[in-house]
Design a protein around this nucleic acid. Structure first.
Length: 869
RNA sequence: GCCGGGAUGGUGAAACUGGUAAACACAGCGGACUUAAAAUCCGCCGGCAUAACAGCCUUACGGGUUCAAGUCCCGUUCCCGGCACCA
């Protein structure tokens, strides 16, 4: 049963873990295939970007996934848990520029290293299904789908606005724009319009929204965020007619507050709006303002927080209901790519318009009133924007109408003139998927002067990304490679030019979970994808709550509508893990830039209460500023390397600590203390296992029964709690329960061998998903594999014994006026009257009852009695 | 700015459906064992007050509902995530 190397009494994580891992590898324990005899369980963690080495967030994510996967397997499920690499992306290009290494080489080396780390952590992964999104065997299918979606009209081309760095002549990601300047060049960033491909996600807006109600396995907060992001609103789209240079035109806007139209005192248009550009031709001041609006990033957060500015165009449109002239302004806060690129402004009933009108001295006209409130243009009051219990005033024939009625009447009048109608609008915008980057999936389109944009025929796929390139950081590499872009048109055979943009990396991560099911399929997916779909449990960071998860939901539907799948929702249950955060430390340079220091290089000073009072850089002993506690990131240099933890304490300790330290959905604040405690606990388990082998097992006979009912009650109470918490995915208290179980077993008399055996077999099974290596070794060494006829990974999950949990007397509390005053014992099946009588007679409350009248007695069976006096 | 979330002892946290606030740990303090150290084991450990008990207070802050509120409602502060080209 055991070999000499296993009989060493000291807990040696490295040896224990190598032993378990080689067992799993030799038995191919976690390679699975379709099996109609058992329920399937597809447990998926978000795939990592191969940035170099694992960070703590990865370890947390995959540990949570592994606990769920292993515990399901022990409950009889056919469990698939795969892993792969989100291998395209910007960091590889940055590394290439900085270290002069090809992105492909850099990425593949990172993958090899990180794979080794994942294997060292002992996750129950089916490595035979591993995929890397940068492999042509993966992205060829994505290119194939692209051409289908292009034909179906679900992908189309239009102009979009990007951040343009005029010095590096390159498009910048929002992340690369810092305070309006390019991160490398320092140049003031400009907005530039370029032609791009878009996925028509808005075609699915209604379905994506409605289906959120049918995702009970998703956290409510994620569903709410997606709902708000899709942003369905019902309103009125209408036009302000105008005449310009003798030509008639219409300026269209959308509003959800058509009941306030009579208070519209100006119209604001985006800087890129055709009317603005036309007016600027003869208005240098306006032209200068439009130029100013072109500067800065395209990020919405920047647009929303910047100072709202505007300039009058000098043009006027006519109010569609009053025919009065209304001035047209250009506002830097109006987005051309959103809605109509123009908004009506009602200063009296919109807070932003109010501020703008005050700033530029534009009229503020009240058209909504509320009983008991007085309107004043001096300061904004929240009720000005109310929709309930308000009515129209100063609005002619609409006076007295409530919100809904006014909208109906106004929409009808606009429609009668052909100047508007009710409309449902979504905040959701189509998904721009073109990237002017090198390290991504090439867009499979050929541009021909005669034939236009021609999709690459199936037979010519994949369009391979050339892998040996030099990156300079200027321009787009593919656009400088004639050997890549020079080609012939598949239709007419004449010389043509290949598209040099690549796809957004979110495209790869929108369907990878389907490819795991059939990684060797000749087509994009096959029947195996249907067997494993949908993913039963998805685990990943809360930061992906909107974009990635929404894109994947859309993509699954698009594939369904191409006949590739039968289902619409990719992920049945979702667990959004909290972030791993750590303190930040920095020093500010004279130019305002911050140098960030890693927590590992910092010594902190604490006061007698343990609070941090100061921090110093170990290297020079000089003080540093203590920043906020934030998500571990490269930019803030506050990452803690999990490798050091694994090297020192082993994978089981790292896993146990991460599970124990915080509930999965909550943020996990990293601290080195506590890891030691996890290690001590596992060592106690190991030492108990050695005692089991040396003392308990030799004394045990199979006919013996557990003796100590009180301890057995505690043991099964902890097991019941653990099972309940596991179901809720509150894994930290599952870990606590295993600690409580060990505390019980260490109290148990050595002679009660049956209790020890029962208890330890339960403990090992409950602990095994969290610390699988240690438990695997003890399970074998203590003979449980023979007793239970299964290796631990396949052992049946333990269930509490109801006989052990039965009680005939229970303890209840007595409150007097809601304050705890005493306790008493009562038979478990006592009647309400008996409980009440026992409570009133209890010694501990006599002092409070003396001279008082008991007005009311509240009995909560099994818990407490509250005496109201 | 907008959307979503969070705040409980020195620290991480627990408290099931509104019913004993602080389980389980970490750190700290005291003790046992030891020539000594490490390891291990035992005890104490929210605040005020007290010789000790009794008692009073306490779940970010301010109100409210209830026999009873960490939990529900209203308002506020601070922190975190996302905001469409970071992944």
């Amino acid at each position: 049963m055991t070999s000499a190397s296993h009989t060493d009494h000291k807990y040696d994580p490295a040896a224990v873990e190598a032993r378990a891992q080689s067992h799993w590898q030799q038995t191919r324990a976690f390679e699975v295939r379709e099996d109609s005899a058992r329920p399937k369980y597809y447990c998926l963690s978000m795939l990592p970007y191969p940035s170099g080495k694992l960070h703590m967030g990865h370890v947390r994510n995959y540990t949570i996934g592994d606990v769920l996967a292993r515990s399901r397997r022990m409950r009889g499920y056919n469990v698939l848990q795969p892993m792969g690499w989100d291998a395209f992306g910007m960091p590889a290009e940055n590394a290439a520029i900085q270290h002069n290494v090809a992105p492909a080489k850099w990425t593949r080396e990172n993958i090899a290293y990180m794979k080794g780390q994942l294997q060292r952590l002992g996750f129950a992964l089916d490595w035979s299904r591993e995929i890397a999104t940068c492999d042509a065997d993966y992205y060829r299918h994505e290119q194939w789908l692209f051409t289908r979606l292009l034909e179906k009209g679900l992908i189309y081309k239009k102009k979009g606005v990007v951040n343009w760095d005029p010095i590096d002549e390159t498009v910048l990601a929002n992340e690369q724009v810092i305070d309006g300047r390019g991160w490398r060049s320092g140049a003031v960033v400009e907005k530039r319009e370029i032609a791009m491909y878009y996925m028509k996600i808005t075609a699915y807006a209604e379905e994506l929204l409605a289906a959120l109600d049918e995702l009970p396995g998703w956290p409510q907060q994620v569903r709410t965020m997606q709902k708000n992001w899709i942003g369905k609103s019902e309103g009125v789209r209408f036009a302000f007619p105008y005449e310009l240079d003798g030509e008639a035109g219409q300026l269209w806007v959308f509003t959800t507050r058509a009941d306030t139209i009579m208070g519209a005192t100006f119209v604001a248009v985006a800087a890129e709006h055709p009317l603005a550009l036309r007016a600027a031709q003869s208005n240098p001041q306006l032209a200068a303002f439009i130029e100013e609006c072109r500067q800065g990033s395209v990020a919405e957060a920047d647009m929303e927080t910047m100072e709202k500015k505007g300039v009058a165009t000098g043009l006027f449109v006519r109010h569609p209901l009053t025919n009065e002239p209304v001035p047209v302004w250009v506002g830097n806060y109006v987005l051309m790519g959103y809605g109509e690129g123009a908004v009506m402004a009602v200063p009296a009933h919109d807070e932003r318009d109010f501020a703008f009108a005050k700033k530029y001295n534009l009229p503020i006209r009240q058209v909504i009133a509320k009983d008991g409130e007085t309107f004043s243009t001096d300061a904004w009051q929240p009720w000005y924007a109310d929709k309930e219990n308000v009515h129209c005033v100063h609005s002619g024939k609409y006076d007295g109408l409530a919100h809904e009625a006014a909208i109906d009447a106004i929409a009808a009048d606009l429609a009668a003139q052909g100047l508007g109608e009710k409309k449902v609008q979504f905040r959701l915008r189509d998904w721009g998927i073109s990237r002017q980057r090198y390290w991504g999936c090439p867009i499979p389109v050929i541009h021909c002067e005669a034939c236009g944009d021609v999709p690459v025929p199936d037979a010519d796929l994949p369009v391979r990304l050339p892998e040996n390139v030099e990156l300079t950081g200027r321009g787009s590499p593919l656009a400088k490679m004639p050997e890549f872009y020079e080609c012939t048109c598949p239709r007419c055979g004449k010389p043509a030019r290949r598209e040099t943009d690549t796809l957004d990396t979110f495209v790869e991560s929108s369907w990878y979970f389907l490819r795991y099911a059939c990684p060797d399929a000749a087509t994009m997916v096959d029947a195996r994808a249907q067997y494993w779909s949908p993913v039963d449990q998805y685990i990943g960071g809360i930061e992906h709550a909107i974009l990635h998860l929404l894109y994947a939901r859309f993509f699954t539907r698009a594939m369904r509508d191409c006949g590739l799948l039968e289902h619409a929702e990719p992920f049945t249950r979702l667990l959004t893990q909290g972030m791993v955060v750590a303190e930040t430390y920095y020093r500010e340079q004279k130019n305002g830039k911050k140098d960030w220091f890693n927590p590992a290089d910092i010594d902190v000073t604490r006061d007698e209460k343990g609070r941090i009072t100061a921090a110093h850089l170990r290297q020079d002993g000089q003080p540093v500023v203590i920043g906020n506690t934030e998500k571990m990131s490269k930019s803030k240099n506050n990452g803690v390397d999990p490798q050091a933890l694994i090297d020192q304490y082993g994978a089981d300790t790292a896993r146990f600590f991460i599970i124990f330290a915080a509930p999965p959905e909550q943020q996990l604040e990293w601290s080195d203390s506590g890891v030691e405690g996890a290690y001590r606990f596992l060592r106690r388990v190991w030492n108990y296992g050695q005692k089991m082998r040396a003392e308990i097992l030799p004394a045990h006979t199979d006919s013996a029964a557990p003796q100590d009912a009180a301890l057995r009650f505690e043991l099964h109470t902890h097991l019941k709690q653990a099972n309940h918490d596991l179901e809720k995915m509150q894994l930290n208290t599952v870990a606590s329960a295993t600690m409580k179980m060990l505390n019980v077993l260490e109290k148990a008399p050595a002679a009660d061998t049956a209790l020890h055996l029962e208890g330890f077999s339960i403990l090992l099974r409950v602990l095994s998903p969290i610390a699988p290596h240690l438990c695997h070794a003890l399970w074998q060494d203590c003979g449980f594999a023979e007793r239970h006829h299964a290796e631990l990974a396949d052992a049946a999950w333990p269930q509490p014994d109801s006989a052990a949990l039965a009680r005939n007397r229970i303890e209840m509390m007595i409150q007097v006026n809601g304050k705890l005053r005493g306790k008493f014992e009562v038979a478990a099946d006592a009647s309400r009257e008996d409980i009440e009588a026992a409570a009133l007679a209890a010694e501990s409350v006599q002092g409070f009852l003396a001279g008082a009248t008991v007005r009311k007695v509240i009995v909560v069976p099994g818990r407490l009695v509250n005496l109201v006096i």
